[in-house]
Simulated scan of single mutants.
Amino acid sequence: MSGTLDLFADLPPPPPHAERLGPGTVLLHGYALERAPALIAAVERIIAASPWRQMITPGGQTMAVSMSNCGPLGWISDRRGYRYVPLDPLSGQPWPPLPPLLLRLADEAATAAGFPGFVPDACLINRYAPGTRLSLHQDRDEEDFSQPIVSLSLGLPAVFLLGGASRNDKTVKIPLLHGDVLVWGGPDRLRFHGVQPVKDGNHALTGPCRLNLTLRRARR
């Protein structure tokens, strides 16, 4: 344990409500808890305009997680590959705008984690039903890896898997609860990560599901 602590000895301490999990990774426990009802209401408005969908991988597999987007750009997957686009393929219309509350939260959380000045232009919204998982992967469809990723958890709890630079590296299991915000960037920006299968349950605000909002800067 002492060797692990030494790795972070020269880094500024995280805020009192936060836990440093790596050189560029900070878990902000319950950071969005008070704003959760308003955030969920915002998600409901987004989904009314751009409904949930299960996208297809380039290899032709249907993704288990239901997804949508908001912001100037939205992440999609189909036979042509993974990419960011300005229009919702289902409607041909722009994705719903990023709610001001979500923009403010992303900036505040990134700043608290040591990444000031973060202005996302894309927010991928994932809906995890019980039993749904997300396999290990890197977020590398963005143009600028100097920007962090801000990930907000709402609803049912989940176990986040944080790996290393290789898919085969050992993973650390990080419990994520309703209202938690996880930020990773800098030397940790391209770490592999995933989500274990979400356990059965029913949350008072989201019902039988977990919502995950992942904010990124996709374009320079």
Rank of each mutant, 00 (worst) to 15 (best):
S2C: 08
F8N: 04
A9S: 13
P16S: 09
E19C: 07
R20K: 01
R20Y: 04
A38R: 10
L39W: 02
L39V: 05
R45G: 02
S50M: 04
W52C: 13
W52I: 13
R53C: 10
I56A: 09
P58R: 06
P58S: 09
Q61L: 12
T62E: 10
T62Q: 13
T62F: 08
S66I: 08
S66V: 08
S66T: 10
S68R: 02
G71W: 03
G74Y: 06
S77L: 10
R83D: 14
D88H: 09
P89I: 13
S91M: 07
S91F: 09
P94Q: 11
W95G: 03
P96Y: 12
P97N: 10
L103M: 13
R104A: 15
A112D: 15
A112V: 05
F115R: 00
V119G: 06
L124A: 08
N126P: 05
R133P: 00
R133Q: 14
L136V: 08
D139N: 09
E142Q: 11
E142M: 10
S146C: 09
S146I: 09
P148E: 00
I149F: 09
L152I: 15
V159T: 15
F160Q: 03
A165Q: 15
S166C: 12
S166D: 15
K170F: 09
K170C: 10
K170P: 11
T171R: 05
V172S: 12
K173C: 05
I174K: 00
P175L: 06
L177N: 14
D180M: 01
D180T: 08
L182A: 04
P187L: 01
L190D: 05
G194D: 12
K199N: 07
A204L: 14
R210E: 03
R210H: 04
L211S: 05
L215Y: 02
R216Q: 04
R217C: 11
R217K: 15
A218Y: 07
A218H: 07
